[in-house]
């Protein structure tokens, strides 16, 4: 089953390994990212940073069979780089039944983006994407680590409107 699909600009790093994996009891990590999949350096670095018994797959988003991941007998965590990739994953067949929870963990500041949580900056387009995913039945939240209080879509929109 897919325990969580997480948006993180840095993909695999300490917050994922030290907090989410133990909290969710994850047994497999799938990095769905075209750039990482095509970089030998990225593949080597990601493989060496995880504990030996935890398998990590690094594949282009289009190559991921979400149905098969959802049908697996163990908890899987899927990492994508940007909010736009969530929409891409949905277009590629990801359904709320396969992965009910979408977590926005780290999105760095950029032009047009406003502060939603200390680690998440979103643009108007990205908020619209999250709203559409919510309407499609996904549960969307923004937070970097499980011990933080999650911000749901209403809260995200409220903070976006309040931020300048």
């Amino acid at each position: 089953m897919i325990s969580l699909v997480r948006v993180d600009n840095r993909l695999l790093h300490g917050q994922v390994l030290e907090t989410w994996l133990p909290r969710l009891g994850v047994k497999e990590v799938v990095v769905a990212d075209d750039e990482a999949a095509s970089s030998g350096l990225a593949r080597a670095a990601m493989t060496l940073c995880v504990p030996p018994e935890l398998p990590v797959r690094i594949e282009p988003l289009r190559a991921i069979d979400f149905g098969a991941l959802a049908a697996s007998g163990w908890p899987v965590l899927v990492l994508v780089r940007d909010v736009a990739q969530l929409a891409e994953a949905r277009a590629a067949g990801l359904t709320p039944a396969q992965a009910p929870r979408l977590n926005v963990g780290n999105v760095h500041f950029g032009p047009g983006r406003r502060c939603v949580t200390p680690s998440v900056f979103l643009s108007e387009d990205e908020i619209r994407t999250l709203r559409e995913l919510t309407a499609a039945g996904f549960e969307v939240e923004a937070r970097s680590v499980p011990t933080e209080a999650p911000a749901g879509i209403e809260e995200i929109e409220r903070r976006y409107a309040a931020a300048r």
């Binding site: 300490g14 990482a36 990601m46």
Partner: peptide, 15 residues
Amino acid sequence: TLQGPLAALGDGFFW
């Protein structure tokens, strides 16, 4: 490319 994986490694080993 390296900031995420090396952060994971450093957090997991040192911190």
